[in-house]
């Protein structure tokens, strides 16, 4: 029910691949923790006014050390450590089976496939069920490549090539967009991502090469 409200073609909370799913999991865990901490602070603030007697025996040192050090430090160390370990797993380490070149310009995306083959239709074609590296750059200003249901985003910066690894569980149509403000056409810089079953993808590449 709650999750249904979060679904959408561009929703990061409606993941369609393992990488986006782990990001969504991280979000739900942090949301739960944040809700608890928020409730704790507001309840203490309320008690200070409504039932001052309940807290009057806490010494200044206990407030500072308890609330300011003992409460946040373990949470932050654990969370940051876990996020760094997760970040390591999401890095494009080693070579993915497939590397696709993505180039942004005002205000469209184009994608190039290994060997110069591939359909040049502005759609990003990729095989489902395996990780794919997208090497992103820009021909003019800074853009950002973002397919929320498959993974995070990476900026397309002129003079730099940045690599992001995506993975889709199932064949299907996904949507991506430009996330970094890039001028007047920034609104319309969406692109289609089509994930194919591996054999269909191979056929598509072979067909385009001919």
């Amino acid at each position: 029910m709650l999750l249904a409200g979060c679904s959408g073609e561009l929703s990061a909370l409606d993941p369609a691949g393992p990488r986006a799913a782990s990001l969504a999991t991280l979000w739900w865990i942090m949301l739960g923790g944040a809700a608890l901490l928020f409730a704790l602070v507001m309840v203490l603030f309320g008690i200070a006014y409504l039932r001052p007697g309940w807290l009057s025996r806490i010494t200044p040192m206990q407030w500072i050390v308890g609330g300011g050090l003992v409460l946040p430090i373990p949470i932050l160390v654990l969370l940051t450590g876990a996020a760094l370990v997760l970040g390591e797993q999401l890095l494009p380490k080693g070579d993915a089976p497939l590397r696709i070149e993505g180039q942004a310009r005002q205000w469209a995306w184009s994608f190039g496939y290994p060997g110069g083959a591939g359909p040049y239709d502005g759609t990003l074609h990729m095989p489902a069920g395996e990780p794919v590296d997208i090497a992103v750059t820009s021909a003019d200003v800074i853009h950002s490549f973002w397919v929320p249901r498959l993974g995070g985003k990476i900026d397309a910066i002129p003079g730099h090539v940045n690599v992001i690894r995506l993975e889709a569980d199932e064949p299907g149509i996904y949507w991506g967009q430009c996330a970094e403000y890039c001028g007047q056409g920034h609104d319309g810089m969406q692109f289609r991502v089509e994930a194919h079953a591996p054999e269909d993808f191979a056929a598509l590449m072979a067909g385009a090469a001919q």
Binding site: L84, G87, E88, L91, K93
Partner: peptide, 14 residues
Amino acid sequence: VLVFLPVTFVSACI
């Protein structure tokens, strides 16, 4: 101690 700790285990160049 905490902010510099990642030098021990995080990928340096990726």
